[in-house]
């Protein structure tokens, strides 16, 4: 089994606080890796280190290496925009772009000049279908994206990200802001997508992690406490902290 992303000696500092302390993590190819841990332990920060998003955080410093298909994304001269094209991000709250539904999906294609053809409609349709939104929006593609419900917007964000044909999808509590039905919808989509993509999922819902994850990384106070195949970590955790968290006594 190959690792799609390998993190080596990763240290993240924001201002004077060390937020990730020496993390070594393997994210296996074509699987769902769940990142678990109590609030504030650094899950979002870890995720943001994987698409160079920490570049946007003032006063942040990153040491160590993050390999994507063997290439260190922190090496000098790396094209950050290309890294972010290859690694999609599904945020906790969906943020549609201030344009039409159609243009939201076309946005990535346009900026990366993926497809120069005049008629993007079949492509847009394809990705909206992939995200399970097509039927609901096909008659109003030119409406503002902000008119959609939160759950629909999250699927729009998924479609928009998929249109870039990424290899990896980072999902930071992608269902926590959604109603139960929409949450189920997104979760179902992730389940389907794991056939084709490597997915890194941060979640606070243990049941969701059990349903989706093939691989688990457990973090505590900025450190990786335990990682391994989901079944092993869930059924037979090695560390006391992991046990306590899984039993619900911390976090």
């Amino acid at each position: 089994m190959e690792n799609h992303i390998q993190i080596r000696n990763l240290k993240v500092r924001i201002g004077s606080t060390e937020i990730i302390k020496n993390a070594d993590i393997n994210i296996p190819d074509g699987q769902v890796t769940a990142i678990l841990g109590p609030s504030g332990c650094g899950k979002t920060t870890l995720l943001r280190s994987m698409n160079r998003f920490l570049d946007l955080t003032e006063n942040s410093r990153v040491e160590g290496e993050v390999f994507l298909d063997g290439q260190n994304i922190y090496a000098p001269g790396v094209d950050v925009t290309e890294i972010r094209r290859r690694i999609g991000l599904l945020a906790q709250r969906p943020y549609s772009l201030p344009m039409s539904i159609y243009e939201n999906v076309a946005y990535g294609l346009r900026i990366h000049r993926v497809n120069q053809s005049k008629n993007l409609k079949p492509i847009i349709r394809h990705y909206l279908e992939l995200a399970g939104l097509w039927d609901e929006v096909k008659s109003r593609l030119s409406d503002p994206a902000s008119a959609l419900s939160i759950g629909q917007q999250q699927r729009l964000c998924l479609a928009r990200g998929l249109a870039l044909e990424p290899e990896v999808i980072l999902a930071d509590e992608p269902t926590s802001a959604l109603d139960p039905i929409s949450a189920q919808h997104i979760e179902g989509k992730l389940q389907e997508l794991k056939e084709k993509y490597t997915i890194v999922l941060v979640t606070h819902t243990l049941r969701q992690a059990r349903r989706l994850a093939d691989h688990v990384v457990f973090m505590y106070l900025g450190e990786v406490v335990e990682q391994g195949p989901a079944r092993e970590v869930f059924d037979n955790p090695q560390m006391e902290r992991t046990k306590a968290y899984l039993q619900g006594s911390i976090g």
């Binding site: 698409n51 998003f53 950050v80 925009t81 945020a91 709250r93 943020y95 772009l97 900026i111 928009r160």
Partner: peptide, 14 residues
């Protein structure tokens, strides 16, 4: 909104 800007950066926009 910073998050809206970030949504664009997350897609690899300059």
């Amino acid at each position: 909104p910073r998050d809206l800007e970030n949504a664009s950066y997350a897609m690899g926009a300059t």
